[in-house]
Design a binder for these strands. Structure first.
Length: 509
RNA sequence: GGCCCCUUAGCCAAGUGGUAAGGCAGCGGAUUGCAAAUCCGCCAUUCCCCGGUUCGAAUCCGGGAGGGGCCUCCA
């Protein structure tokens, strides 16, 4: 199957085609940096990081750009509130954002352009729009003239005439039409400003994305991504100004990810008796229900959070809850346990396994052809899901089936006990390599999970081993009362023992 | 008022015309001295409701109910 991608512009899945064969320019709207990121801000980066991983796996050379909007009304307002320098605020929030991305394994972004570093590019586009008659300057402001753009509204199916009916549009007597939006805003006294042909001021909200994306990726992007809530007005306006400026199609594929939701306290109470009201709301600052990423990572591993974001199709809304995270951790743990098992069997770390970085054919062969053929079927299922508009939820299902196949093979061939056939271990390794290959596409299992602090403590490890040895003696002597007491008391300390063919192991949790 | 989207088991979730993946939880079994881990089996005759198209629909069309997003800043 060939890759198909859902395009918001046409509202259907289309065969993926790029402007330049083999190359992909991908731009995703990043944050306006005035407050620490909440988990909703991670959805896009994780999704599009996975998109890039998969496109690279398919052989595309992908340039991935995420902008940082570091000048905006909200930044100015928040800095004033905190009595802080706006620039310093923007920088510290940016650092928080970048650290969160790193934690979540979002490692494929090539450029993080800042709006303040592209003022000249922004001004050039604004001037171009004025020259072409799409924009007009008034008292130091510059506005985009919506009626001049015949196909304005095509992304969101919006009729400019009806924008007036909304009545929620910012009133301004400077605008010629209610739907017109600012490209350049004149600075009020004390506000940050850059000199420009229309007077000192700063860029409007949408223009920085047009300027930076076209500068880094050319006039036509292959993929433009962002949250569903950015469709209008942000992307609609970006589209309008970019195409009016360049005269070329701005984006091949518009991709929008679903929003993070959270069960709100106030409605949860009602939901208990009111059937049908699930009490879910979008996570947002205005509703005061945001969960800051930094806080989440104090309690949960970043891998669980990433797993959550990939467990649902990217266009669907996704609920954030502690229960769900716990549930997913249990699922993830079964993979981690397998990796330890793999190491016991082969003496090799799963995380060191080589895996093809490019998609190729999987040739079963081997001594245990049925087993490898089954591995191949799961691999095909995984890749078919990814080909179908990056269906990560379905792909994860295939990953679980692959895990089951591998465990079953290890059981059936008693790889952990006695002296297993070398051919069985070799085929087992080949099968496991496929799990490594596929999980890398999702950015999962890149490194061993961080052991809880107690697990790294040599004293603790020594003491637990001592008790395991004593228990082994007791078991040998058939003194099960003592043996069980040791296990029970350890369990109370959150230490679980596992008696395996090769000896007893332990883990926290 | 306008524009979009969603509704699959206790929960999460894949599935866009061919007879319901997967996970969590639960239950039964193998294994174990007993557990844990792993494995096996069970767990939606049915996909919000009502019509229609079709040999055949969770999937297409029409209507209804419920939920959500956008139209103002939002990932």
């Amino acid at each position: 199957m060939a890759l198909r991608v859902y395009n918001t512009l046409t509202r259907q899945k289309e065969p993926f085609q790029t402007v330049h064969p083999g190359k992909v320019g991908m731009y995703v709207c990043g944050p306006t940096v005035y407050k620490p990121s909440h988990v909703g801000h991670m959805v896009g980066p994780v999704i599009f990081d996975t998109v890039k991983r998969y496109l690279s796996y398919l052989g595309y050379q992908v340039t991935f750009v995420v902008n940082i909007t570091d000048i905006d009304d909200k930044i100015i307002a928040e800095a004033a509130r905190q009595k802080r320098d706006w620039k310093e605020l923007a920088e510290s929030v940016t650092a928080d954002y970048l650290e969160n991305l790193k934690q979540l394994g979002v490692t494929t972004i090539d450029h993080f352009p800042r709006a303040t570093e592209h003022i000249a590019d922004i001004q050039r586009i604004i001037q171009g729009l004025i020259d072409k008659g799409y924009a007009y300057a008034v008292d130091g402001d510059v506005y985009f003239s919506v009626p001049k753009d015949e196909d304005y509204g095509k992304l969101c199916n919006r009729d400019p005439e009806q924008l007036e009916a909304g009545a929620r549009i910012e009133v301004s007597d400077k605008k010629r039409n209610p739907g017109d939006f600012a490209l350049w805003k004149a600075a009020k006294p004390g506000e940050p400003k850059w000199d420009g042909p229309w007077g000192p001021g700063r860029p409007g909200w949408h223009i920085e994305c047009s300027a930076m994306s076209m500068k880094l990726l050319g006039p036509t992007l292959d993929i433009h991504g962002g949250g569903l809530d950015l469709q209008f007005p942000h992307h609609e306006n970006e589209l309008a100004q970019s195409e009016s400026y360049s005269g070329l199609p701005f984006v091949r594929f518009w991709m929008h990810n679903g929003l993070m939701k959270i069960r709100s306290q106030s409605r949860k109470i009602r939901a208990d008796d009111a059937a049908g009201d699930d009490g879910l709301q979008k996570m947002s600052k205005s509703l005061g229900n945001e969960i800051v990423v930094r806080e989440v990572l104090k309690k949960h591993s970043p891998e669980v959070l990433r797993f959550l974001l990939l467990s649902t199709h990217y266009r669907s809304p996704i609920e954030y809850s502690e229960e769900r995270l716990g549930e997913l951790k249990r699922g993830l743990d079964s993979f981690h346990r397998f990796f330890e098992r793999y190491q016991r069997i082969t003496g090799e770390s799963f995380y060191q396994l080589p895996a093809p970085s490019r998609r190729g054919a999987f040739e079963p062969g081997g001594t245990h052809a049925d087993f490898l053929a089954e591995v191949g079927r799961h691999r095909d299922a995984f890749l078919d899901c990814m080909d179908d508009d990056f269906n990560t939820g379905g792909a994860i299902g295939a990953l679980y089936e692959l895990l089951n196949t591998l465990n079953r093979f290890a059981d059936a061939h008693q790889l952990e006990s006695g002296a297993p056939a070398a051919s069985a271990v070799a085929d087992f390794r080949r099968g496991t390599m496929v799990l490594r290959e596929l999980s890398q596409i999702l950015g999962l299992f890149r490194e061993p999970p961080a052991a809880p602090s107690a697990g790294q403590d040599r004293l603790v490890a020594g003491l637990v081993q001592l008790l395991i040895d004593l228990r082994a003696e007791a078991r040998k002597a058939k003194n099960f009362a003592i043996a069980d007491q040791i296990r029970q008391r350890l369990a109370e300390l959150n230490i679980t023992l596992e008696d395996r063919p090769g000896g007893t192991g332990w883990r926290l949790g």
